[in-house]
Simulated assay, not measured.
Amino acid sequence: MLTDYIIRLALAGLLGAIIGFEREFRSKEAGLRTHFLVAAGSALMMIVSKYGFSDMLGDQDVALDPSRIAAQVVSGIGFLGAGMIIIQRQSVRGLTTAAGMWATSGIGLTIGAGLYWVGICAAILVLIGLEILSRIFKNDFSKVITLEIETLSKATLNNVMSLLKDFDVDIVGYSYSKHEEQDSILYSYVITGRLKKRRDELTLLTALNELEETVSLRIL
């Protein structure tokens, strides 16, 4: 049984690492090591929950629930996933990674329970959802972008808004501030909008960079 337990831990860690590699390749909040630890840890909790108290089964008046410890992984992983979700300027980041972490813990529990092929198939489906589906649909949905621009002229805002309209960007909101910079006044704008054609992001950045009196420009 010891060899079987080690195989379960190793396989769970391997599947978690594969999913984590995909997240790390995309520079997401949690990467290879985090997913590896979540999967291996979940498998360990399942093994302990299912087999760790077998020596007490012969004791009188002792009743064990083999799913009790493993069940806490589901709620515990929620706190870890919540730390990856960031709300930044009316857009949510890290939600997919948090969901992937939750799925990875489920894979670890499945492997720890000895359901090898179920866990392997689940890992394949998670990778399909993270990688292949994102490639298929990456140009079909709008993307929330945040534009940070600093200019020397307040009138530049009209040019920026006009350019965003030409690129079919729906403006969600913007903020404005100004401060003195040596002998001039620097105007700062933060504009949030939805870019319907994601492939136009680089072209949009180039067009904005060509505006006169632009000091700095960044798209998030």
Rank of each mutant, 00 (worst) to 15 (best):
T214F: 05
I18G: 01
L109M: 10
Q90S: 13
K197E: 14
E150L: 14
A155C: 07
I85Y: 00
G58D: 09
M45H: 08
S153Q: 11
G94N: 00
V73G: 12
S162N: 12
R218E: 09
E22V: 06
L130I: 02
I87Q: 07
A113S: 14
M1R: 13
G16W: 12
S75G: 14
K50Y: 03
Q88S: 14
H35M: 09
T34L: 01
T203V: 09
R218L: 10
I7Q: 12
D4G: 00
D55K: 11
Y116C: 12
L11F: 05
G108R: 13
T97E: 10
R33E: 08
L57K: 11
R218F: 09
P66A: 03
A155P: 01
Y176D: 13
I120L: 04
F167A: 07
I191H: 04
I191C: 09
E29P: 02
F79P: 00
V118A: 13
S142C: 05
G106S: 09
E212T: 14
K50T: 11
V160W: 13
E213G: 01
G129Y: 04
V169S: 06
G13L: 06
T34C: 01
I136L: 14
I185P: 00
T203K: 08
M1F: 04
T151F: 06
A103T: 13
F79N: 02
H35F: 15
T104H: 07
K50G: 09
S42Y: 07
G78R: 06
G173I: 11
T3S: 06
I47E: 04
G129I: 07
L195E: 02
L44T: 02
M101L: 15
G20A: 07
A99M: 04
K138M: 13
S54V: 13
L186C: 10
V118D: 03
I87M: 09
G31I: 08
I18A: 13
S134Y: 01
L2H: 12
G106C: 10
A30T: 02
L157D: 00
S134E: 04
I7H: 10
S49C: 09
Q182C: 12
T214A: 12
L44N: 00
Y174L: 11
F25P: 03
R135Q: 02
S216D: 07
T151S: 14
I171C: 02
I77M: 09
Y187Q: 12
R199V: 10
I18Q: 02
A71W: 04
K196E: 03
C121L: 15
N159M: 08
G20N: 01
S184R: 15
K154Y: 10
L37T: 12
S75V: 08
C121S: 14
L57R: 10
A98N: 04
E180C: 02
E148K: 15
N209G: 09
S105D: 03
C121K: 10
L32D: 05
